[in-house]
Each structure stands twice: as structure tokens, then as C-alpha cells.
């Protein structure tokens, strides 16, 4: 099967609608995934990736891989993938020269049928790493 793979720039941001502290205070494990295990991309990239054919995005950086839901957002520039700052986005951020790298990082984005990582699976991954 043909694998569609595209280079993107990852940016992580704080958004009131997708706020991790809020979800930990008022939400549950389901709402954490709904609000934070997501990535916004430009509708043109959404179409190019044929995201409507498979539900999720697999985003890989030099530091790790995460599966999240892809959402089209015309406010995001083409070639950029935007994620709310959270334990999900931090699976693919990293450290260079003792400085945090959480913005403007090159990532690969594929579409996938693999399941979105839930909070428990991420906690277990962190524990076992």
C-alpha cells in the first residue's frame, strides 16, 4: 500500500479550548483525549494527506512518535502542524543543548488507522522508557 508522507513544521501552542490543566481539573480520560490528542492542519494539507480516508495522524519527530486525531483548520499555515501543549505533544518534543525544543521542529506526518494513544498508554510508556 502506498504510504503518503509529508514534511511538516510542528508548533505547540496554548489554546483555551484545548487546555490540559482545565481537562485535568474538570474533564475525564475521554475529554483529555478529545481535547488534547489532536493536531490542526491546513485544509489543503488535510486534502493532500487524504485524511478523510483514514481517521488519524501519525506524527514522528527525531524525539518520538504520537498518534492523534487530525483536524482541518484554515488558520494554520500550509505545511504546519499545530498541537495544543500537552503530554501528547510532548511525546515528540525534545531537548537540545539543555534547552527545550517544542516549536518550529521538522516532523513527518502520515495518515494511519492506528489507535490514538490514551493517557494510560502514555503514562505506561513514560514509566517503561
Amino acid at each position: 500500500m502506498e504510504v503518503i508522507k509529508t514534511d511538516f513544521i510542528l508548533n505547540t501552542v496554548r489554546r483555551m479550548e484545548n487546555d490540559q490543566s482545565k481537562e485535568f481539573s474538570f474533564g475525564d480520560k475521554k475529554s483529555l483525549v478529545e481535547k488534547l490528542a489532536i493536531a490542526f492542519i491546513n485544509p489543503k494539507d488535510f486534502d493532500k494527506l487524504n485524511l478523510s480516508s483514514k481517521p488519524n495522524l501519525k506524527i514522528s519527530s527525531n524525539f518520538g512518535i504520537i498518534i492523534v486525531k487530525g483536524i482541518a483548520d484554515e488558520d494554520v499555515p500550509e505545511g504546519t502542524v499545530l498541537m495544543p501543549i500537552s503530554i501528547w505533544s510532548n511525546q515528540i518534543t525534545g531537548v537540545e543543548n539543555s534547552e527545550l525544543r517544542y516549536k518550529n521542529m521538522r516532523v513527518d506526518v502520515d495518515i494511519t488507522e492506528e489507535k490514538i494513544n490514551d493517557l494510560n498508554s502514555l503514562i505506561n510508556k513514560i514509566k517503561e522508557a
Binding site: 524525539f63 518520538g64 510532548n90 518534543t93 525544543r101 510508556k125
Partner: peptide, 13 residues
């Protein structure tokens, strides 16, 4: 604070 969420996986692990 919640460093397990806020730091990259390489640090939180």
C-alpha cells in the same frame, strides 16, 4: 506544576 506533562518524554521518563 505538572512536569510529566509539560516536559518532553526524554525528561519525563
Amino acid at each position: 506544576t505538572d512536569p510529566i506533562s509539560h516536559f518532553p518524554m526524554s525528561l519525563s521518563s
